[in-house]
Design a protein around this nucleic acid. Structure first.
Lengths: 359, 359
DNA sequence: CTGAAAGCGCTTACAG
DNA sequence: CTGAAAGCGCTTACAG
């Protein structure tokens, strides 16, 4: 067999002009195109000897089926959509990278679709997007994932989907569940281990499930050690830097002041740092601050934030694999790799947390 | 004409089961599908009366041509690729949003393709991506945009492309040129206006054109006021936070110390802030720090960074429009909107810059 | 296990 | 200005 590329069409006289089609392969292998189609689609109903001959021709010519033609015949494209409204760039990029990791070598491509859940045409837009592109499937990160109307729509139009969320909102085959609750508990234990008693929590917006889960885990772990947050110890932010500053201001003017603040995400924690600086407080000597997510901001800020690292990219990879595998693809082996621990959050201790001040 | 959606197929007995095809529209309008195709493709060779009749049927049934079928016949998809290796999440997300802005309503979709320019299979990968998906066109942000091999390849395989870069590297129709040079000059003038004399510059890596342009603009504006940077006043970073810390450490231990540092991007400027804090220096009293980009980090850091805002999203919008319009689409009107000033960088003064210390 | 026919939903020549 | 035929590169029934 000639080496690849030696007499591939690209190097011939008509260099790169035309790619081989299923008809070329069929002719060259002396079979019908239907049989070539069978080996492309891994049908078991092909004699080994025939399959090998066809595969050799395919390899020799560097043939790859046209996804557009295949899609037209299948009535379904080889496109996977990511429909999202998460405002954090790093989350978005990490999620995209993770999805791409899971899609690598599969022949699928990723189409990105930011959206606005508050728009009156939101659902119609999603529907148009999915139907017009005949999407193979879609991945929904929070908070789109938390919108049952979207899941209902997708079910109606028969589009495969994976919801990424911090609680099991749907059938297991449609879910990748994060462990925000566990992360909240890790934060609580860390703060408790440092000896803090006056502890406050800045939650994210109510509309995010993660917000409730992080809080729930935090409060549960506190309760395990006999500590209970008063309603006044819990204050609501918006997952933004500015809201972190505002909540910090509010909390730090109190008497007695909390000695530790757990913020629902890094941006708000960074805001608390800002607020503490304005108040002339020293972190971590006077105040411990713990964030959540471990995005870049956690390290760019001073002091660098102790935070809960969440494996966004890994979760994305699992979501894509689940979507693709769902249809009975190979690479079942990879399942082994899927160590659940890899999707668990973990505490990263940096310099914004320290022992409770001995008052 | 019945109102849209009233007796559209979705609401019929076979609710949502089947979308109208070109054949349905042709039959309903009493013409051949070729004529429907003509109105879809805005051919001038259709009698007005015929066109209106067809358009009415199209509107009534909410018909939209299948991009996959159209792509197969056209031998070209309605997909636009973004091929990039820029490591900054905010840049990537803003660029994606800008491209999407420019594509809105056009029927095109965005396929993202991060890549590694150092990979031995890099060019082959790009080629496979473009050819297999029969991409309508691709947008190349830096530093992929600066790779002439990519442009050459794209020309060879006849794929439309737009290079986004800080210098005119290609024919105008293939370029969106940023104004990094102007931004560098703005930084210089600001620092000069504050009375600084001992000024240092932290450049990005040599492999980024923006790095040279920002420096070039900075030095030129300095020269206009009779100031010249010594080679030792220029130090090279890597556009990363860590490199900013390292360069800051290096610069701040000198005697005499610079009173102002212009860093080639915000991340490095944030690093300098960190370094200054370690050295016990007060910003801006002892040291002025100016960044470039105006990404989120510029505001999260303390003190908030004076920096050069670059309109990444707007540039992305222009790139997408140029790619699509290039093929002779309508919306020429929009051209008017294209105020060149909107793509220019501009100085954002925050708290990291102040008058030169009176030593 | 393999193939000939028809079709997916469009467009490109080619006529008229 | 309009249309009938053939084709884009695949797959789905249906035979054998």
């Amino acid at each position: 067999m000639p080496s690849l590329g030696d007499n591939a069409p690209e190097s011939g006289l008509e260099g790169g002009r035309k790619r081989a089609t299923i008809n070329d392969i069929a002719r060259l292998a002396g079979v019908s195109k239907k049989t070539v189609s069978r080996v492309i689609n891994q049908s078991p109903f092909v004699r080994d000897e025939t399959r090998e001959r066809i595969e050799a021709v395919i390899a020799e010519w560097g043939y790859a089926p046209d996804p557009q033609a295949r899609g037209l015949a299948f009535r379904r494209s080889f496109l996977i959509g990511m429909i999202y409204d998460n405002p954090n760039p790093q989350y978005v990029v990490n999620m995209q990278l993770g999805l791409l990791d899971g899609m690598r070598g599969s022949g699928f491509e990723l189409v990105v679709h930011p959206c606005n859940r508050a728009s009156p045409t939101f659902l119609a837009d999603v529907r148009t997007f999915v139907e017009r592109q005949k999407l193979y499937g879609v991945v929904l990160p929070p908070s789109v994932s938390e919108d049952d109307r979207v899941a209902k729509l997708l079910n109606e139009i028969g589009c495969a989907y994976i919801r990424i969320a911090s609680v099991e909102l749907d059938k297991p085959e449609n879910m990748i569940v994060g462990h925000d609750r566990m992360g909240g508990a890790q934060a609580a234990r860390h703060i408790l281990d440092l000896g803090h008693k006056r502890i406050a929590f800045i939650s994210g917006p109510d509309s995010f499930r993660s917000s409730h889960e992080r809080r729930g885990g935090f409060e549960a772990a506190l309760a395990e050690r006999g500590l209970k947050l008063e309603p006044s110890d819990i204050i609501q932010g918006a997952y933004t830097f500015e809201s972190g500053v505002a909540c910090g201001d509010e909390l730090l003017k109190r008497t007695p002041r909390p000695t530790a603040i757990f913020a629902g995400n890094d941006e708000m924690a960074a805001g608390v740092l800002q607020s503490a600086r304005k108040a002339g407080l020293n972190v971590p000597a006077d105040l411990t601050v713990v964030g959540f997510d471990d995005f870049q901001i956690a390290q760019a800020v001073w002091p660098p934030l102790t935070t809960i690292h969440t494996p966004t990219r890994e979760i994305g990879r699992m979501a894509a694999e689940k979507l693709i595998d769902a249809e009975g693809r190979e690479r079942r082996e990879r399942r082994e790799e899927r160590d659940p621990a890899r999707t668990e959050p973990n505490l990263v201790v940096r310099e914004s947390s320290g022992p409770a001040p001995s008052v």
